[in-house]
Amino acid sequence: MQPVDQKIHHLGNHLGYAAGFTSALLDPEQPSPAVVSGPNGKAAAKRYNVYRNNVTVSLINALVATFPATQRITGVDFFRAMARFHVRATPPTSPLLFEYGHDFPDFIERYEYAQAMPWLADVARIERAWLDSYHAADAEPLTPQALASILPEQLANIVLTPHPATRVLRSRFPAVSIFAANRSEGPVGSITETEPEDALVTRPRLEVTVRHLPSGGATFLLRLIVGETLGAAATAAFANYPQFDLSASIAGMIEAGAFTAANHGGRST
């Protein structure tokens, strides 16, 4: 049976060159495609390899740029080998490279050679969320004054609008500590944390910040983000985490700039 791309090439009436050209672009085992050659009867193998190399290396570099802490943990060679597998199996579907890599954390979780680092995928998830937050829409965060102006008896019924740059991630591992230790250029000290850590990623203005959420904080924020009232979100957090600290969590989310507005009965404050 003829490969699909070749059929398109024959049917394409001089416009099948893209199908022909890309047929071997992500597969180094294939010979260079028949649609191209070298000039003056020269061979095209090393010439076509320039494109192959540009594609694979530039996409690996895009993953390196998005996941620097993940690379620091694994080392450069390990990371690039892992990224190469991912690039060839799951190349980007958007021309916006900052959108690439959303499937990479799940790939890491399944990647045979990364099984000894079960927290690695969660570190990658924080890094992916960091870049989403970086490119998210701008919005003014909710001020402490706006929240303070709400009457105490109405507080339980307010619904908050999440800031476009806000992300909450849960981990069964100390992912925030591992992320923080490896994200900077400085020396990585020994990481003594062993407890699960949830992350709050925000960017109230121009700086992305990753915070380690206290017990119950992720449940509380995730409920608020999907539009539950402050009262319902607090009840859910207390039910699962008896040591949940409501006032500290509210102060923390305001300081972090996680929300833009508080609404009560359809009115925005």
Partner: peptide, 9 residues
């Protein structure tokens, strides 16, 4: 739907 991130001829 694949974006190859190179300027192809």
């Amino acid at each position: 739907t694949t974006y190859f991130n190179d300027l192809l001829p």
